[in-house]
Design a protein around this nucleic acid. Structure first.
Lengths: 211, 211, 211, 211
DNA sequence: TATGAATGAGTTTTCATTCAT
DNA sequence: CATGAATGAAAACTCATTCAT
C-alpha cells in the first residue's frame, strides 16, 4: 500500500491518523502529566509531543481537564477490573484482601506513570467544591471501596477475618494505607525500601481473628 | 506614638505593620491555598485578603512558592513537635505509636486547613527532579518518620511491639495509613465515618507481639 | 426511491438533500445571527442547528460572511419588492410614502428576526474601506432609497407633497427615521410603546404642503 | 527636570506614564474601534498603538469590553451634557428641539470616530439578553430621551409645539431619526449629501402646531 | 520597608477554513 | 455533492514578578 510509505516520506507517523490521534494525545499527556504534573504541563507541550496540532486536543477532549478525566476514568476502570479479578481468585476473604494489597503495589510499580496522576494531580487539580469532576472522583473511590468491602464481608463469613471489625471503616483503613503508600512511593518522598511484603503482613495481623 | 494614630486615620489595621504584615500574608495564604488550591490562587488574591500590597509578598517570601514552603515548614515543625511530645508521654512504645495515630487524626480535625496544604496540589517543582523545595519536602517527611521509628524501637525494647518487625518499613506503613486517611478525609472522597478508633485498633493488632 | 428510505433508516430528515441543505443552513443562520449576533455565532453552531456538516456551509456559501450576505440580499430584495407593491397601490404620492412608513413597521414586527440582522453587528468588512460586501450594502440601501424617492416625486407632481422639498434629502430623512426606529425597537433600547401611528402622522405633517 | 529628558532618551513617550497610560489606551481604542469595528480589533493592536503592554489594558479596563464601555459612558455623558446646555439656551421648546437636532448633526461631524462606536459597535457587540452592559445602554438611551421629552413638554406649554402630540412617542421618533441618520452617515451607506438643514425643517413642520 | 503600576511571556481555548475521502 | 477530522493562527485574558519611588 502506498499510504504507509507516503506517510513515512512526508515524515508523519503512520499511526497518527483517525482515532490514533486521540491515542497519541493520551500517551503524550500521560507522559507529561506524570513527569511534570498537570498544572505545569501546557496543552502546547502535549500537542507537540503527540505530534498533533493543538486544535486536535480540543477537538477530541474539549478541554485540558478533559484529557485528565479521560485518562483517569480509564486508569480507574482497569485498576478496578483487575483488582476484582484478583480478589475473586483468592480462596478466602482474608487472602482476597491481602492479594488486593499485593496487587496494588504491583500496579504502582508497573503503571507508575498513570497512577502518579491519581496521587498527585487528582483530585486537587480538578474543580473544587461540588464540581462535576469531583463527584466523578468520589464515585470512583466508592467503587473501589465497595470491592474491598465485599472481600472483607466474605472473610467474616468464612472466618478468615475477625468478625467484630466494622466493614466500611476497615476498608477505608486499608484503602488509606494503599493511597498513602502510593503517594510516598511515587512522589519519592520516602526512602526507597520495598515494603510490599511488610504491608501484607501488617494487614494480615490487623485483620485475622485473634487466635 | 504617631504611627498608630495615623494608621487609624487612614483606616489601616494597626496590627498590620512590620512583621505582622508577614503574618497577615501567611494567614491569607493558608486560607486561600486550602480552599482553592495553590495553583488556583493568585498572589493578587493573597495580597488583597491580607490587606497588603503585592510587592510585600515578594519582599517577604521571594516568590509564590516561597509562601507555600514557609507555610509547610511551619506545619511540619509544629506537627512534629506536638507529635514528639505526645509520644514521650506514653508509658511504652506501642502506646506511643498508637497515641501518635490518635494524635494525627485529632490534628487533621483541628488544623484541617493547614494540613490540607499537604494533601492538596503541590507546586510542580515539588514533584520533579532534585529541586531544592523537593529536597525540603523529603527532609520533612524523613524527620517525621524518624520520630515514629524511635517509638517502634522503644516498643521492641520494652516488648510492647513485635520484635521481628523491620522498623523503617513498619514506620512507613503507619505513616502511609495516616497520609492516605488524611487525603480521603480532607478531600472528602470517602464517606464521612469516624475511623480514628478503628485506626488505633488496626495498628495495635498489626504491631503487638502475637500472644 | 432508495434515498428517502435510507434517510429514514439513518434518521435524517428527508427534506435535507440537495438545495434543501442550502435552505436549512440559511434558516439556522437567521435564527442564530438574530439571537446571538453574527460574531458570536460559530459556523459549527450553524451547521449543527441546520443538521448538515460544517463542510456543507462552505460548499454552498464559501465563507461565514457569505451566509450573511446571502441572507441580507434576500431580506433586502423581499423588503423592496413588498414595499414597491405597497407604494404602487397608494392613490397619491403622500399616501404612498406614509403607507411605506406603515409597511416598514409592520415588517419589523412580522420579520423581526430577519430584520434584526440589518441592525445588529455587521461583519468588519462591511464597515471599512471599499470592500466588495460594503459596496453591496450600499447598493441595497440605494435601491430602497430610490423607491422612496419615486413616491416623493409622484407626490410633488400630484400636489400631495410640498413641492419645495429636495427629494433625495427628504427620502434620506424618512429612511433614517425608519432605520433608527428599527434599531431602537429590535434592540429593545426604548420603552415599548407603539409609535407606528405617530410615525405616520409625524411624516405627514413634515411632508404635506402648508395649507 | 531630568525625568522628561530621560524618557525621551529611552524612547518612551513622556505622556505615557501614570494615568496617561490609561488615556493612551482609550485613544488607541477609539481610533481602532472606529476604523475597524470592535470585533475586528484585537487587544494586541490596541496595546501596540497605545504603546503599552497588553497587560496594561487589562490592568486598567479589566476586559476588552471594559474599554468600550468606558469609552461609551464618556461619549454619552458629554453628548448629554452638551445637548442639555444647547436645549437650555433656546428661547422656546420648539427651538430647543430643533437646536438639539442641529447639535446632533454637528456632533456627528466633529466626533465622528467616537460616535461611530455608538451606531456600529454598540449595543450589538455587547452581551445579549439581559446583560449588564445592555442595561447600561438602555439607561443611557433613556437619559437622552428624557432630555428630549423635557423640551417637547416645554414647547407644548409655551405653544411652540403642537399640544396634541404624545411626548414620549414623539421624542422616540426624533431620536430614531437622529440615530438612523447617524448610521447612514457614519457607515457611509447613503449618498453624501448634507441634510442637516432639511432635518431641522422636517422636524419643525412635524412638531409645530397647525396654523 | 512597602507600594502598586506595569509588564510580557504564557495560558487555554475558539473557530473559520481546508481537504482527503 | 457532502462529510467531518484536522488544523493553526489568533484571540482574550492571567499572573508571578519587577522596580522606581
Amino acid at each position: 500500500m502506498a499510504t504507509e510509505e507516503n506517510l513515512k516520506i512526508i515524515g508523519k507517523c503512520p499511526a497518527c491518523q483517525g482515532p490514533d490521534r486521540r491515542e497519541a494525545v493520551r500517551k503524550a499527556a500521560v507522559t507529561l502529566f506524570a513527569k511534570k504534573g498537570f498544572h505545569a504541563t501546557s496543552t502546547a507541550e502535549v500537542a507537540k509531543l503527540a505530534g498533533v496540532s493543538e486544535g486536535t486536543i480540543f477537538y477530541y477532549f474539549g478541554s485540558k481537564e478533559g484529557i485528565l478525566l479521560d485518562l483517569l476514568s480509564e486508569v480507574n476502570l482497569k485498576y478496578r477490573q483487575r483488582m476484582a479479578k484478583v480478589l475473586e481468585k483468592a480462596p478466602d476473604g482474608l487472602s482476597a484482601v491481602l492479594a488486593g494489597v499485593e496487587f496494588h503495589f504491583k500496579q504502582v510499580r508497573q503503571h507508575s506513570r498513570l497512577l502518579t496522576l491519581l496521587v498527585r494531580d487528582l483530585p486537587a487539580s480538578l474543580g473544587r467544591g461540588e464540581s462535576e469532576p469531583r463527584e466523578f472522583m468520589r464515585r470512583q473511590t466508592a467503587l473501589i471501596l465497595e470491592v474491598m468491602c465485599q472481600s472483607l464481608r466474605r472473610g467474616q463469613e468464612d472466618g478468615s477475618v475477625a468478625a467484630d471489625l466494622p466493614v466500611m471503616e476497615t476498608a477505608l483503613l486499608i484503602r488509606s494505607l494503599l493511597i498513602g503508600a502510593t503517594r510516598l512511593l511515587l512522589l519519592k518522598l520516602a526512602p526507597e525500601v520495598d515494603y510490599v511484603g511488610q504491608a501484607v503482613g501488617f494487614c494480615r495481623r490487623a485483620l485475622a481473628p485473634c487466635p
